[in-house]
Design a protein around this nucleic acid. Structure first.
Lengths: 115, 115
DNA sequence: AGACTATGACGTAAACATACGACATATTAT
DNA sequence: ATAATATGTCGTATGTTTACGTCATAGTCT
């Protein structure tokens, strides 16, 4: 009965974890940075710039696409991948809210613990 | 030869992925939110508030601790877990930089692709 | 000391992720 | 039509994560 308790968390928690998971591999971070730096939405060129096989890169691209962080539009023979800036913006807000919430409260002096 | 190419990415990419991975499970997101909301925090209580067994929660706590996002100070019989606000702040900056970079560039009209 | 409690460590089964070669498909070029 | 090219899909080997029960340890209490 493994991996069955995820539904017991809030939608927000699941959403944040979902995006975090998409960013939980350096290759996927690199892909997003690459797409951000290039003006043109390259396709197979991405694979050429990473130290991974084309197949593996394709897999990572699918993963990012399934979360919605990137989009892939077929343009003849090649596929044009680009960032979904709206979602990224939205996710940015979500992460910011999370971090603000997490950093606002400090273990005060009235606590029993020493941290 | 799986999982052997990670070293070929930049330190920044690895660091960001590492933290993202720590947040890639709703339970860990929930734990951080819980620690942020409570002034005092003890491991056993955390398990009580999550739909997971104490053992599993302990495992998630270790994971967060290994990345450095939380700290656990032994206080007699119990362990006092609390957020590492300095690291969280730092990570927040890192994520912000990443998202800003990712959202600044839009696929311009001069491109061939339609996205 | 002996019972009690809070935790972490260990073992483990099932699920998932990673990486990649081989194959399939579809589009362009000759 | 045939060849070349760009991509995705499939299968698969290996490693990692998740979830949890059981046990060990170490601090409290009487």
């Amino acid at each position: 009965m493994t991996h069955a308790k995820i539904s017991h968390f809030t939608t927000d928690q699941q959403q944040l974890a979902r995006v975090a998971k998409a960013l939980a591999h350096p290759a996927r971070v690199a892909i997003i940075q690459l797409l951000a730096s290039k003006k043109t939405c390259i396709s197979g060129d991405i694979a050429a710039e990473l130290p991974l096989s084309r197949t593996t890169v394709s897999q990572h691209l699918q993963e990012l696409k399934s979360v919605g962080l990137i989009r892939g539009d077929i343009d003849g023979l090649t596929v044009c991948y680009c960032l979904n800036t709206e979602l990224l913006e939205q996710v940015h807000q979500q992460f910011t809210a999370f971090f603000v919430e997490a950093t606002s409260t400090t273990c005060g002096p009235e606590d029993a613990c020493a941290c």
